[in-house]
Lab assay of single mutants.
Amino acid sequence: ADDEVAKLLVDAYRKNDEDKLEEVKKRYNISDEQVKRLIRKVL
């Protein structure tokens, strides 16, 4: 599931889509710190 979330985050990140990032964060209840970590893992 982590990889799936990471893909969604990276996708939103690449598109610079703040709304999507927020949506994913809320849906999976993850912190900014986790977001950064997941994005770093993929990029």
Rank of each mutant, 00 (worst) to 15 (best):
L9V: 09
N29C: 08
K36S: 08
N29Q: 10
D2K: 08
R37F: 04
Y13M: 11
R27K: 14
E22K: 10
D2Q: 09
L9G: 00
L43F: 08
N29D: 07
N16Y: 06
S31D: 10
K41D: 12
K7H: 10
E23K: 07
Y28W: 06
L21H: 01
N16A: 09
N16S: 07
K36I: 13
K15E: 14
D3Q: 08
D2T: 12
D32Y: 05
K25V: 03
D2P: 10
D17T: 02
E23W: 09
E18C: 15
E23R: 06
E22W: 07
K15F: 08
R37V: 10
E18T: 15
K20V: 10
E4H: 12
E4V: 11
Y28G: 01
V42T: 09
D11A: 04
I39S: 00
R40M: 13
V10N: 04
K36L: 09
D17G: 03
D19Y: 11
E4A: 10
K20Y: 10
D3E: 11
E18R: 15
I39Y: 01
E33G: 06
R14P: 02
V24D: 00
K25P: 00
Y13T: 04
K26T: 08
K26A: 10
N29P: 00
Q34P: 02
E22P: 00
E4F: 14
E23F: 06
R14V: 14
Q34F: 11
I39G: 01
E18A: 14
Y28K: 01
V35D: 01
D17R: 04
A6H: 07
A12P: 01
L9Q: 00
L8D: 04
N16D: 07
K26C: 05
V5R: 03
K25W: 00
Y28E: 01
R27H: 08
A6S: 10
K41I: 10
V42W: 14
D3S: 12
D11F: 00
E23N: 05
S31K: 03
R40C: 15
R37K: 12
E22I: 09
E18M: 15
Y13E: 02
D3L: 10
D17L: 06
Q34M: 13
K36Y: 04
I30V: 07
K36N: 11
D11S: 03
L43M: 11
D2R: 09
E23L: 07
L21K: 02
L8K: 06
R37T: 10
K26Q: 10
E23P: 00
I39P: 02
V24M: 10
E23A: 10
R40A: 14
R37G: 10
Y13D: 02
D2L: 14
K25F: 01
Y28A: 02
R14L: 15
K26L: 10
Q34W: 09
K7P: 02
V24Y: 13
A6K: 08
D2W: 15
K15S: 14
N29A: 07
I30M: 13
V42S: 09
A1P: 14
I39M: 06
I30Q: 01
I30Y: 06
V5H: 03
R27P: 00
E22L: 11
A1R: 11
K15A: 14
S31E: 04
E18V: 15
K20G: 11
E22A: 11
L21E: 00
E33C: 06
R27I: 09
A1Y: 15
D17E: 06
E23H: 05
V24H: 04
V35N: 01
A6R: 08
N29S: 07
Q34L: 09
K26W: 03
A1M: 15
V5G: 04
K25R: 08
L38N: 01
R27Q: 10
D11L: 03
V24S: 01
D17S: 04
R14E: 14
S31T: 12
V42P: 02
V42K: 07
D19F: 11
N29M: 08
K7D: 06
D19K: 14
D32E: 08
D3N: 10
K20D: 04
S31H: 04
L43R: 05
Q34R: 05
R27V: 06
A6Y: 12
S31R: 02
D2N: 11
N29E: 07
K20S: 09
R14K: 12
D19V: 13
R37E: 15
V5N: 01
D19W: 09
D3Y: 11
L8W: 04
K7A: 11
R40L: 11
D2I: 12
E33Y: 04
D3K: 09
E4M: 12
N29W: 02
E4K: 09
I39H: 01
Y28L: 05
V42L: 14
D11Q: 05
L8H: 05
I39C: 03
V5Y: 06
A12Q: 01
R37A: 14
K25E: 00
V5A: 06
V35G: 04
E18F: 15
E4G: 07
N16H: 13
S31L: 03
L21R: 02
E4P: 09
K36G: 09
I39A: 02
K41E: 12
V10W: 14
E18I: 15
L21N: 00
E22H: 08
N29H: 08
L21T: 03
L43S: 06
L21W: 04
D17H: 04
A6M: 13
A1E: 12
K20L: 15
S31M: 03
N16W: 06
Q34Y: 11
K36E: 13
E18K: 15
E18G: 12
A6E: 10
L21A: 03
A12S: 03
K7S: 08
R27M: 12
K41L: 12
L43E: 08
V42C: 11
D32W: 15
A1Q: 11
V5P: 04
K20N: 05
R40I: 12
E33K: 06
V35W: 08
N16Q: 10
V24P: 00
R37W: 05
D17I: 04
K15P: 01
R14S: 12
Y28I: 02
E33S: 08
K15I: 08
R27W: 05
L43G: 05
E18N: 15
D19G: 12
D11Y: 01
D11T: 03
E33W: 04
